[in-house]
Simulated assay, not measured.
Amino acid sequence: MKMFIFSMEIVEDIKEKYKIKIEGKQGVAHVFFSPKIKELEFIENNEMSRYLKENEYQFRKILHNKRQDTFYKGFKLTFAFRDKKDVAAFNDRSKIVVLDKRYNRIDSYVVEKGEKNIYKIFTDGTFLEKKNTGAYAVIIEDINHNYSVHTEKTAIKGSSQIELCAAIKGIELIKDVDKICIITDSQYVRKGLTEWIMCWKLNGWKTANGEKVKNIENWIKFDKLTDGKYIEFHWVKGHSNHFENTLCDIYARESASLSLENFKY
């Protein structure tokens, strides 16, 4: 999928409406945007403006994800669009999102059905607030349908971060396998590596708000571990009687309930 990189700068503040300059391969365009009412106005009718309109959903998503207090004159951001991205498909949780980092390229796209002969990583993580402890579980299913289970206790606080650690551990456990399907109930893991990470890296691991990405070390590790691999991300709803996901949840909770000694980070 072809990617285009752009830079934007807020050049004027006019009573809660901001004039933004966008520059890229297609030229330069200016827009007005009001973060309070989410109103977007294209000023020129040139090639860049037309391209932004064609990809308005992606453009709006960047603007909408910024907090109101991070709109100010002088703010700069670099971002990327997937040309003619099928936004609806990427947002459809029933679809499988593919990250293909083989052949010295990076591509992401959506498929209806995944590969048949592929290693599967099932993950889940939990953080027990009352005990102030967390853990994750990873189930590996190889192409011969043999299962192996790994659980690990962690001092990390927060379910999303623990889910990320579970996915990383799964990749590490089968590091020599280049075609993998990750089955997870975490949108943080699924979208982070297939959609968000590109803009984070373009901005020195900062978000659209200009703030440091949380869990940078783990995201960098996850990114490097997946180099050269074909990864399918299959999202499942948590606590929906999906067998392996439910089993991971049980193992993770049991592990988190054990002694506080010997935490893994």
Results as ranks from 00 to 15, higher is better:
23 E>V: 09
26 Q>S: 00
27 G>H: 03
30 H>T: 11
30 H>I: 10
33 F>D: 00
34 S>H: 08
35 P>C: 10
37 I>W: 08
38 K>H: 14
38 K>M: 13
39 E>S: 12
43 I>F: 06
44 E>I: 10
44 E>H: 04
50 R>Y: 05
53 K>G: 05
53 K>C: 01
53 K>V: 02
54 E>N: 10
54 E>H: 00
57 Y>W: 06
57 Y>K: 11
58 Q>W: 05
58 Q>F: 03
59 F>P: 04
65 N>V: 01
68 Q>K: 15
69 D>K: 15
69 D>A: 12
71 F>V: 11
71 F>W: 12
73 K>L: 13
74 G>Y: 12
75 F>C: 09
75 F>S: 14
77 L>V: 08
77 L>I: 11
78 T>Y: 12
79 F>Q: 05
79 F>T: 05
81 F>W: 06
82 R>M: 14
82 R>Y: 08
84 K>F: 11
84 K>N: 15
85 K>S: 08
87 V>P: 06
87 V>C: 10
88 A>R: 13
88 A>Y: 10
89 A>M: 06
91 N>Q: 13
92 D>Y: 07
96 I>D: 05
98 V>W: 01
98 V>I: 14
101 K>W: 07
102 R>H: 09
103 Y>D: 15
108 S>C: 07
109 Y>Q: 01
110 V>S: 07
110 V>H: 08
112 E>C: 04
115 E>G: 00
115 E>Y: 08
118 I>F: 10
118 I>A: 09
118 I>R: 12
120 K>C: 03
120 K>V: 04
121 I>A: 06
122 F>A: 02
122 F>G: 03
123 T>S: 11
124 D>E: 09
131 K>F: 07
133 T>L: 14
135 A>R: 11
139 I>W: 05
139 I>F: 03
140 I>C: 01
141 E>Y: 02
142 D>H: 03
144 N>S: 08
145 H>T: 05
148 S>A: 12
149 V>D: 01
151 T>K: 09
152 E>S: 13
